[in-house]
Simulated assay, not measured.
Amino acid sequence: MSTTTPPYDGRYGIGELAERAGVTVKTVRFYSDRGLLPETSRTTGGHRRYGPGALERLRLIRALRSLGLAVPEVRRVLDEQDRHGRPGGALEEAVAGHLSALGTQLTALRWRQAALRLVQECPPGERPGRLRLVGTVAAPPSTAPLARFWRGWLPPRMPAGSVAAFLEVAVPRPPDDPTPAQVLAFARLNALTSGPCPAGRRPQPAAHRTVGARGAALLYEGLAEAYELAGAPLRRGREPYAGEALDCFVAAYASAYGTRDTPGFRELLAGQLPADPRLDRYWELVAEVRTPPGGRPEPTPGAAHDWLLTALTAPAAA
């Protein structure tokens, strides 16, 4: 009795498809059962058959999965390809989302690595304290405590745009690839801004408590200009002196108060702007966080403020 082999009809059996794609039969069945790899028919014995395009579709599914896309994301990409003949916006959205997530994960790993080096490289007696300090900071760290600190310090009812502009300057962005020293500085910033105000000190300076919303906006617009002007002599290492930067500094407060720049006003202002060791420490730490290895620290608003305050209180400034 002779048998005849049925002619090849361009379709794959599940085993052949799995072999050609370099996957297991179980994998092919998994994608089929979830509708990602439709079968074209079944034999009389119930075996699955796949059309000529199944191999390329399966290879595309494997490629998408190898990039970390979840099954629902793969389905959206395939549906879009079925409609338009090629992947489009769904693939771009999925890839962008995964790149962003991976970037966050890599940054977190770099922060953990730097934190471990910080603990490893410090003297044994300091390790418990370092561990407690860095243990309070997430990886990658959040800047929320720093922003809350400044929101409580800034004048009340200050316009949202002015607040955002100030926070952009005052809150340092955590570096993506920090050194142990930068991790330590950021952890100290977090501890400094999360702690209560020192006994007897109010959250805001007296100069802030007398200006309204409009005055606050004028004040910080003028201060930003004054700090920028003070940056040039700070970079050159010049001692504080009366000049354009100081005039701009005083004018910012005069505009906020609705008054004129006079010797009497300067004397009054000097009394309302005492040095604040807590803020001085804050800006020192900001400089450490922002300075790359081997780099030169840029003047911070805090350094500019201290330089201008010294110029204001110097006898020649009057």
Rank of each mutant, 00 (worst) to 15 (best):
F166I: 15
V137K: 00
R86H: 13
T179E: 10
E73V: 04
G243Q: 08
Q204M: 13
V137S: 04
V163K: 06
P155A: 15
D9C: 04
L154W: 03
R130Q: 12
G89A: 12
A115N: 04
W307C: 01
A114I: 07
Q272G: 09
S194H: 03
L36T: 05
A206K: 10
Y12T: 02
R59F: 09
T291M: 03
A207P: 01
P124Y: 04
L229Y: 00
T4V: 15
P196N: 14
R173G: 14
L37R: 05
A230K: 05
L192R: 08
A275C: 11
E244Q: 15
V163A: 11
A63E: 09
A139G: 02
C197F: 14
L69K: 08
D247T: 14
W283G: 00
R20V: 13
E73S: 07
F249I: 01
G15E: 10
L91G: 08
R296L: 14
P205T: 09
E16L: 13
R59A: 13
E93N: 07
A187T: 03
V169T: 11
P38W: 08
E39R: 14
P145A: 08
E126A: 13
L37T: 03
V163M: 10
V211T: 07
V119N: 03
L218C: 09
R29N: 06
E288P: 00
G15K: 09
D280S: 14
G264F: 05
E284V: 12
D79N: 10
R127E: 08
G237A: 02
G85P: 12
V211F: 04
K26S: 15
W111I: 11
A165F: 01
P52V: 07
R75H: 06
Y31M: 10
R188W: 02
T24I: 10
V23I: 12
G45R: 02
R57I: 08
T104W: 03
E221Y: 05
P277T: 08
P198Q: 03
A275D: 11
L102F: 07
G152A: 10
A230D: 04
A90C: 05
R117I: 05
T193C: 06
P263Y: 05
G129F: 10
A114C: 08
L268M: 14
Y253T: 07
T27F: 10
T24G: 12
P196L: 15
L154M: 10
R49M: 12
S32P: 00
D82A: 15
A63P: 09
C122Q: 14
E80R: 05
V23R: 05
P155H: 12
R157D: 14
F265W: 01
G295Y: 02
R34Q: 12
P297K: 12
G22I: 07
R48C: 00
G195I: 01
